[in-house]
Design a binder for these strands. Sequence first.
RNA 1: GCGCCGGUAGCUCAGUGGAUAGAGCGUUGGCCUCCGGAGCCAAAGGCCGCAGGUUCGAAUCCUGUCCGGCGCGCCA
Length: 543
Amino acid sequence: MEAARDEAIARGDLTIPHASELPAVRIERPARAEHGDFATNAAMQLAPMAGMAPMRIAAALVAAVHLPEAMASAEVAPPGFINLRLEPGWVADQVAEMLDAGSAYGRVPVLRPRSVNVEFVSANPTGPLTLGNARGAFVGDLLCRVLEAVGHRVTREYYFNDFNAQVRNLGLSVLARRKDEPIPEDGYHGAYVADLAANLPDETWAAATAPGADPGEVLGRWASERVRAGIEESLQRLGVRFDVWTSEGSLYRERWVDRAIEQLRTAGDVYEKDGATWFRSSRLGDDKDRVVYRSNGQPTYFASDIGYLAQKFSRGFDELIYLWGEDHHGTVARNRAAAQALGFDPQSVHWLLMAWVRFVRDGTEIGMSKRAGEFVTLDELLAEIGPDAARWFFGSRATTTGIDFDIELAKRQSNENPVYYVQYAHARCRSILRNATDRGVEPSTEQARDLLRHPAEQALIRELLRLPDVISDAAARRETHEVPKYCLEVANLFSQFYRDCRVLTDDPDEGRFSAARLALVDAVRLVLANSLGTLGISAPETM
RNA sequence: GCGCCGGUAGCUCAGUGGAUAGAGCGUUGGCCUCCGGAGCCAAAGGCCGCAGGUUCGAAUCCUGUCCGGCGCGCCA
């Protein structure tokens, strides 16, 4: 199209005064089928500088354009759009291309694959994962899958505290349970604390109660590791796995924190005031400076963050992604400042914030407090609605959108969940393919160009052609919710095709289409399997 | 008070300056001789929170305002 523009200018059909800067021609996919497969607003964008009516410019562009083989036509539409249509035979031929690509179809590698660290969930190991952690677990996993689909090397990382006050409180809660004393005020009241106390090994108990021992520390360390292992198992049940588990304590043992802060001090970004040590984050966009060492000498949580940034970058990642709840958004500015002050490209660190999930049961909000012991666990959610439906639910929403999650509603709707509609379409493809094998019918794309001309077939293939764009966009935007939408669209168009185009038949007249349509069914199966796979959702043979 | 994120159909949510604003669920009405009815078709349902502005064109960008969530610690 840009070539057409230049040619139109050369021919004198289009005059742009004093070689103005020409905007790049943008091609989009129109919302309506009658507007073609692609469209561009180039003529309307050129109109002000050319001083010509958009319709006339569009006509000049169309006259000058050399359509590639895949394109059937370019038409002008008011108020100045140019609509492009794909050649139906080319469209039909793409079924063979998709089947050749197989499981790689839709996975278009980016130009520059990066090594990306994605940190998510990172809940403190002071209790089982709750519904509150569900969104982070699914969104993070989906994000990793999408990034991997376009060729990035992804490390999934979980960061947890193993020595702070919360862990100590957990230890003291276990102690109280064990001794049948009241749980401390800041302690944890959930039933799992009693389980921990009951399963305490004798040697741990002995170590905790030995003379001079710190029971809170000893029991906290033991209990938090046990809880952490339980979290890992829960996540595995969700289909979420992590490559690296990093403890806050290791950042101190390996001296990442003090070395990073010394580096900042050398650079003049750290100073002492009121007995505390401060990082000059206000110099780099934060509202105010932040304490890294308290006046009692203890590091703040932010100090750990700084050390962690240095530790992660030392491992050679090109990009760091933090997936946080939006309640942490106030800490982003200081972390960004720290990354910059440490000499890292701020463009290579991203903090993605997820809006809060409001959990309601029949209209009233329910709290999620580990400390009070009032929560629904992730395992309970899974038992109620299943991992596929849960993945679909959280994967279908933009991360910036607040969600109202009604557990009763989710249970009731789990049977009507759109995910089953998509899985059903996949199972139906499989069923048709099985029936074909029984009848001895083989899929073939040999005559597809001539045979796959039905509107339902053409619409379906054109949708299948979108998969690479959908995956690439999701990875570039770091938002996955377009993928479930796309699955739904494919399943819907497949149903229409299934209604209008008989695949297997005893009718000899209709039978000549069988092999080509079977290949199309196979392509639909492939696209559904690949896109569901990107979501971590199963693509069943039967339902 | 200041900052960040939201406000779109009855509900839950898409919508990356373009053409008549969409989907799922729910509601209403149709469709089972035939490859899987967990399906298909149709209908009803919208001052895109409100008011200005920018633009040939605004749900989208800017300003103001209202409502909701979150954050503003030597907590994490």
